[in-house]
């Protein structure tokens, strides 16, 4: 009911969505995968989306809708089959340190300690070791891992590994964080804690975040806007502005009427079982 006024329909002309302050510009982007049987599979179709500098945007959709693929394309890890993709006005040709990924699988370097992992990007970019180490220690502190500097990834829990991964990416100061279901492998309790920590970090320096998830609550809790994709091929079904006050606290939001309405409305859009009254 309430959502009618909040929904921004997909058929808004793309030109109208392009603003000067946009960090990521995606125009009519598509991705086709070649499958083993010489048929091609259309994973993403006609994606047009603009993400403003400092905006927190979640991409939500059923599994297999290509939401992670969209993120990988923005990261430059996968090339699109068609359409336009610009970051800070420049076309994307490959990965770069302006876009820092955080993956569900953590993807830490297992032969490096926590400190070694967090320092890695800075050392790789030719910063002096002392400076890299100081910055890494600062970030390890930020993600509450002080005391674990010399631990190897295999000695850490899932939540701790993801904290290391986030610190490792933040260390080289990307303008955009690309988060691919970063809390998907964590238990519910750890997940809630990590969502709070992420928001705390985000409130500090307001990086642009593109956040892929299949959890409606997570998307609503974290985002300024939620992009809902359709099932295969992934098309933008709706983009919803989340007009909830910040800083957000989970305990307050759970009681917040608008939060609840957003969640129910999006659940319905996604045809989640039990969403209908």
């Amino acid at each position: 009911m309430v959502a009618a006024g909040l929904l921004r329909e997909r058929d808004t002309p793309p030109e109208m969505e392009v603003t000067l302050g946009s960090m990521i510009e995606i125009g009519r982007l598509s991705k086709t995968f070649d499958t083993a049987r010489r048929t091609s599979h259309l994973a993403l179709s006609d994606i047009t989306l603009d993400v403003a500098d400092g905006e927190f945007v979640s991409i939500l959709g059923p599994s297999g809708c290509g939401k992670s693929t969209l993120l990988y394309i923005v990261g430059g890890f996968v090339s699109p089959s068609g359409g336009i993709l610009k970051v800070k006005g420049a076309p994307v040709t490959g990965p770069g340190p302006d876009r820092g990924p955080v993956f569900q699988e953590f993807a830490l370097f297992p032969w490096k300690t926590v400190l070694g992992n967090v320092m890695y990007g800075l050392v790789e970019q030719g910063r002096p070791r002392a400076e890299a180490e100081a910055r890494a220690r600062e970030l390890i502190d930020l993600v509450h891992l002080k005391g674990y500097e010399n631990f190897y990834p295999k000695e850490l829990s899932g939540g701790m590994k993801q904290r290391v991964a986030i610190a490792r990416t933040l260390a080289y100061r990307p303008s955009i964080l690309l988060m691919d279901e970063p809390f998907g492998a964590l238990d519910a309790h750890t997940r809630t804690g990590m969502q709070h920590e992420l928001l705390e970090i985000w409130e500090r320096d307001r990086k642009t975040v593109l956040f892929v998830t299949h959890s409606v609550e997570e998307a609503v809790f974290l985002s300024d806007r939620v992009v809902v994709l359709t099932r295969s091929p992934g098309r933008i079904k709706t983009i919803i502005d989340i007009k909830l006050p910040r800083p957000r606290r989970r305990a307050e939001l759970l009681l917040n009427k608008r939060y609840q309405e957003y969640v129910v409305e999006i659940e319905k859009l996604m045809d989640n079982p039990g969403a209908d009254e």
Partner: peptide
């Protein structure tokens, strides 16, 4: 070797030989 590990390295600016 996990693809995502290589992607993480690529995002840091490492080329394919590195």
């Amino acid at each position: 070797v996990e693809e995502k590990m290589l992607w993480s390295a690529a995002a840091m600016g490492m080329g394919s030989r590195a």
